[in-house]
Amino acid sequence: MSLKAFSEYLLLEKKYSKHTVLAYMRDIEMFQLFLDEQHDSEEVSKVGYSEIRQWIVELVNSGISNRTINRKISSLNTFYKFLLKTQNLQVNPLKQHKALKVGKKVQLPFSEQELKTVLESTIEVNDFESARDHLIVELFYATGIRRIELVNIKLSDIDLGNRQLKVLGKRNKERYIPLIDTLINAIKDYSVYRNQLPNIENFDYLFLTKKGVKIYEMLVYRIINKYFSEASSKAKCSPHVLRHSFATHLLNKGADLNAVKELLGHTSLAATQVYTHNSIAELKKVYAKSHPRNLR
């Protein structure tokens, strides 16, 4: 069974993004290279668990993190499940495999003060790029959307009349997110500068570069990193930390976990619960101050 068929299955049936599919294919091709070197070009689809385990040992010895190794093995597992589904494999060699242990990764969100500093002091809106950058930060913090979702927002996705934004998430699943006043104002401010760019009358996407072309993910990362590195001492200043801040701050203020799940576009509560550790800490403070039996 060709890898091309597997790639098409992920794209067309599973509705994975091209970026995700490329990551799956790279992992499988990496295992194939290992087999070419160590097992006389044995095919990925024909090996047993012993060969896979040898690859895992090699990856561990090369210093690759357990988290990354687990992801690579997950890619292989998805491929084998596809082969089972298409009746090109009788037994999944990873059926009894147990993932390597991974330490819990605590992602600290930006504080409310850090967000306020960036939005009210660090970014001075006086031209196209500063208005765009301000809106990008405001949008991430007000909606919790993913970086790829922000990049792909179209003008037609914004409904100021109904105060909502349509977002196309993973597996092409649509969701609608409310727009708050500060975000609506930022959209209007940016639109004034955006409309002054040449030759964009028919350009669909909201966020553009100063040359009038669609913005790209790495530029969005650099924008967030630039402003938050000035306002925060955190080692990581990325769009995902803003998404984390959105969820954590909502939960700290008493938002329902299921509501946050829907806003984030998660398919399960388990994915949303990783954001609750800071909320638990906040609850402990409230509990300690408020409970009548706490005499401290």
Rank of each mutant, 00 (worst) to 15 (best):
M25C: 01
V60A: 13
I69Q: 11
L94Y: 11
L59K: 14
E58R: 14
E58D: 14
V91S: 07
S65T: 15
I69F: 12
N88Y: 07
F31C: 05
R26I: 06
E51F: 12
I56K: 07
S50Q: 13
T68N: 06
V60Y: 14
R67G: 04
Y80V: 09
V44I: 14
L89G: 03
L100T: 07
I64S: 04
K46A: 12
I28V: 08
E51R: 14
L84M: 12
A99V: 01
L84T: 07
E51V: 08
L33E: 15
D27A: 00
K46V: 06
R71V: 02
V91Q: 09
S65V: 13
I64F: 05
I64L: 13
N77G: 02
E58C: 11
K95W: 00
L76T: 04
Q32A: 10
N61E: 08
S62H: 05
A99P: 00
L76Y: 06
K95M: 04
N61H: 08
F31E: 04
V57E: 08
L83I: 00
Q90W: 12
V57R: 13
S65L: 12
L35P: 14
N92M: 00
R67W: 02
F82M: 01
Q96M: 14
L100N: 05
L33P: 08
I28A: 05
S50D: 11
F34D: 01
S74H: 06
V47A: 04
L94V: 11
N92S: 06
E51W: 09
N77L: 03
N61Q: 10
R26A: 05
K85C: 05
V57S: 11
N66S: 13
M30G: 09
K85V: 05
R67Q: 09
N77F: 01
Y80I: 09
G63R: 13
I73D: 02
